[in-house]
Design a binder for these strands. Structure first.
Length: 807
RNA sequence: GGGCGAUUAGCUCAGUUGGUUAGAGUACUUGCCUUACAAGCAAGGUGUCGUAGGUUCGAGUCCUACAUCGCCCACCA
């Protein structure tokens, strides 16, 4: 028997253990069709917040739904312990920079730290009822993953999509590494706009350039004006003298110069910004790179060499002012590109780096985007927008320590790239030696290992490959190419989704998945995204589980619409709590009335039973439709609405028949038993997607067809009770009106109705007559009079038996 | 500045292809201890559907413009 009260905490831990012991969520390839989910490996950087719970739970619900629909669900979990986020976490915990700790020791600390957090993460996700097979979970830095990631790299190099080249790249002089365009974040900062006077060498004509970065004066290689600019275009062809620096550079024309910005005259440096690089390439300008990798002015720059960039800026403005070259200085608020991991302004650099070709295959990436179904559909635009506008090849070299090493050495003498052999993977070039003893090009016997590691996204973009064990003997390529579903939030469409598509296209020439499902964010309050940096999360996941139970927290997560943000709301949790409680109570009620029940073929359903069965079938259609679109929230809403109707109306009507067979007869009672038996099972299955714990508890007690409700399959009923669908609703309406009459007279619902007179159409009259016993019992009617009218119904008279209340 | 989305009851949100008096929950008020549930049941009031136009017999729903908010991108001289 079900307990009087449901103790969530105790039951949830019981079923967690049970599922684990019985391996309920184990993935084994078999004859069933596979539904595979590529879920984001959360970044191991300290904490899972309620936002993670929100989006992961929605995905999890899809996994449970597909399992109920008979799919063999492949749903592995991963952890991203790659690169910078982990390194920064370790640096923070140690209070020391990686450089000070030393490469080997640092990597060890990274492994220890990520392991520690991963077990915490796993515990939390398990407690939330995530139905993943932990046997096949992966880490983005592990021998297996490194092997697959390196194999992916070698494949791209061999196919000519990955190249090593000296090229401008984005550089973070806080993290001391190059970064990708996708890792940029724009920030508004306050700075000054300095109007600096220049002169032409030819005729000493003065002109002004406005700049936010005067420290770049020593890097100027050229001055540009717009050929359409009537004020300045006569300068084209002349030579500009750079004040203080005392260097002469040509003045050229280019239509990219905005006449109305600043003074309309622009200095071009190597490299101040994106445009500088474009001009540098377009006009083949000389390279005058003046920064060091740690954010200083290079020592070869006279007067300013060795200074920090900001110091140099100050000093140079001082010198300009003293020389009388500053016309004015304006305060300015403008947006700069910063590195999203550390928030520091990025610079450009020139060095040899590994790049993956993006620019030559944009059309292919767009085409593949079209082949994938996006949920919600409008998220496809985000992808298109990004791909269409991307301007750089993807730089995958990072000058960091912890991550996937490049399986590469360089010949010390001629610089020839020596690739590792595939059979030797995984390879750490710092420890391992190349398979060849001498350089095939020059014969040198000395090799230099690549010290860089790969970009975080270079490895997380291979999650489908990790899942399918790409290139391994026991691979799952045939069933996971493509995977069924990728899920993530909208902010990483341009990174994780895009890069995964790039890799899949280069490796296999096809899409990595059939569907992409995008979740929204959790907002702390209206208009404020919950983020680690702001620390504005009002609730910790573990606290929420302890306070409300995992099922209830899942309810909250499950109410969100795809792609839409959600606010953390106590009201929603309360609503979930009530729903879970109601499921328990109605199950107890049904269990009570099934003590003597034996399931058998039966078709002689009572009217009101036919009605609720028809209502269920109608609801189920919408429910399934929503789930097939991954709209778990709308599906839950549909189900919940039906469920309350089932409890408050149907159960209230049928209970009299279930309690009193002597009055209603054994067969009508059996009809009610059969109905609640069937529908509770269906409801438990449906609810098991959202509430895996409580539904399991009830299933095990009442049904137990197999080891777990989560291994059952949804079977559709096909009763044709369409007529009851409409007239039954009318019946409920009439019942509701009569109850209203009692209620507004401040009477108990048990108050007998002495006389009820209704005018009704033929259909409704038939409905009442077909359910006459249920109808009268529900409302406690003594005398009922039905008159005929053409359409609908009208309640003519309600006489209640009013007891005199004794004082 | 560009792209996408949102704007419906005090709060959190539904509203499917345009079709009568716009719906839930919550909060509030009133009543009811009804052989599952007081974490319950019944009843009740609450809305210029962001603003302004347009299409239509008919618009919360379609079109245009604007406003506010959010996400992403660009501008950074």
């Amino acid at each position: 028997m079900l307990d009087k009260k449901y103790e969530a905490k105790e039951k949830e831990s019981k079923w967690l253990n049970y599922w684990q012991e019985k391996k309920i969520y184990e993935f084994k390839p078999d004859a069933r069709e596979v539904f595979s989910i590529d879920t984001p490996p959360p970044t191991v950087n300290g904490k899972i917040h309620i936002g993670h719970i929100f989006s992961y739970t929605q995905t999890e619900m899809v996994a449970r739904y597909k399992r109920l629909r008979g799919y063999n669900v492949f749903y592995p979990f991963g952890f991203d312990d790659n690169g910078l986020p982990s390194e920064r976490l370790v640096e923070k915990e140690q209070g020391k920079k990686a450089k000070e700790i030393g490469r080997e020791e640092f990597a060890k600390l990274c492994y220890e730290t990520t392991d520690k957090y991963e077990s915490e993460f796993q515990d939390l996700f398990s407690k939330m009822g995530v139905s993943t097979d932990w046997q096949i979970h992966y880490k983005t830095v592990s021998p297996t993953t490194i092997k697959i990631s390196q194999r992916s790299f070698l494949d791209l190099v061999n196919k000519g999509h990955c190249y090593h080249k000296e090229s401008p790249a984005l550089w973070c002089n806080e993290c001391l590494t190059s970064i990708a365009q996708a890792e940029l974040e724009t920030k508004t900062i306050k700075t000054t706009f300095n109007y600096v006077n220049f002169k032409t060498v030819e005729d000493n004509e003065e002109f002004t350039i406005a700049t936010t970065r005067p420290e770049l004066l020593p890097a100027i290689v050229c001055v540009f004006v717009n050929p359409e600019d009537k004020v300045h275009n006569h300068l084209i062809g002349k030579t500009a003298h750079i004040p203080v620096i005392d260097v002469e550079v040509p003045i050229m024309g280019d239509e990219k110069v905005a006449i109305d910005k600043g003074t309309g005259v622009v200095m071009c440096c190597t490299f101040g910004d994106q445009t500088d690089i474009e001009w540098w390439k377009k006009y083949n300008l000389p390279l005058k790179y003046i920064f060091t990798e740690d954010g200083c002015i290079a020592s070869f720059v006279p007067n300013y060499g060795g200074m920090k960039i900001k110091e140099a800026r100050k000093k140079i403005v001082e010198d300009l002012t003293n020389g009388g070259y500053i016309q004015k200085i304006e305060e300015l608020e403008h947006e700069v590109q910063t590195h999203e991991r550390c928030g520091k302004e990025v610079e450009y650099t020139v060095m040899k780096q590994w790049f993956i070709d993006i620019m030559n295959h944009k059309e292919d990436f767009l085409r593949i985007g079209n082949e994938i179904k996006w949920h919600p559909e409008h998220m496809h635009n985000r992808y298109n927008e990004w791909v269409s506008n991307i301007m750089w090849d993807w730089c995958i070299s990072r000058q960091r320590y912890f991550g996937v090493p490049f399986p590469i050495w360089y010949c010390k003498d001629c610089g020839e790239v020596i690739l590792a052999r595939e059979e030797d993977l995984p390879v750490n070039p710092l420890v391992d030696k190349p398979s060849i003893s001498s350089c095939p090009k020059c014969g040198s016997k000395e090799f230099i290992p690549e010290t860089d590691i790969m970009d975080t996204w270079a490895t997380s973009s291979v999650t489908p490959l990790i899942n399918m064990r790409y290139g391994e003997k026991d691979n799952l390529e045939s069933i996971l190419k493509p995977m069924s579903l990728r899920t993530n939030a909208s902010e990483i469409i341009r990174t994780w989704d895009f890069y995964t598509i790039v890799k899949s296209f280069y490796h296999f020439g096809e899409r990595p998945w059939d569907n992409v499902m995008i979740s929204g964010f959790v907002m702390a309050d209206k208009g404020e995204k919950i983020s680690k940096s702001k620390g504005n999360s009002k609730i910790e996941p573990m606290d929420a589980i302890n306070e409300y139970s995992a099922d209830v927290v899942r309810y909250w997560a499950g109410t969100g619409r795809l792609g839409s943000d959600i606010v953390f709301s106590d009201e929603t949790l309360l609503r979930g709590k009530k729903l879970v409680n109601k499921i328990w109570n109605v199950s107890k009620f049904i269990e009570m009335h099934l003590q003597d029940y034996v399931d058998k073929e039966f078709n002689d359903f009572e009217y009101i039973d036919r009605w609720i069965i028809a209502k269920y079938q109608e609801m189920e259609k919408g429910f399934i439709k929503y789930l097939d679109e991954y709209e778990v929230g709308l599906a839950l809403n549909t189900l919940e609405k039906f469920f309350w109707n089932f409890c408050d109306n149907y159960i209230e009507i049928v209970k009299h028949r279930l309690y009193r067979p002597e009055e209603f007869g054994d067969i009508p009672r059996y009809s009610g038993q059969k109905t609640v038996y069937m529908l509770l099972y269906k409801l438990l299955q449906d609810f098991s997607i959202f509430f895996p714990f409580i539904t399991e508890e009830i299933y095990q007690e009442l049904y137990k067809f197999n080891d777990s409700i989560h291994l059952t399959e949804i079977k559709f009923m096909d009763y044709d009770f369409n007529k009851e669908l409409v007239t039954g609703d009318k019946l409920v309406e009439i019942i509701s009106s009569v109850r209203g009459e009692k209620s507004s007279n401040n009477l108990s619902l048990k108050t007998p109705v002495k006389y009820l007179e209704i005018n009704a159409s033929q259909d409704i009259e038939e409905a009442i007559n077909s359910s006459i016993k249920d109808f009268k019992a529900t409302l406690f009617i003594n005398n009922l009079q039905i008159n005929h009218q053409d359409n609908d119904y009208e309640i003519k008279k309600i006489e209640l038996e009013i007891e005199e209340k004794t004082a």
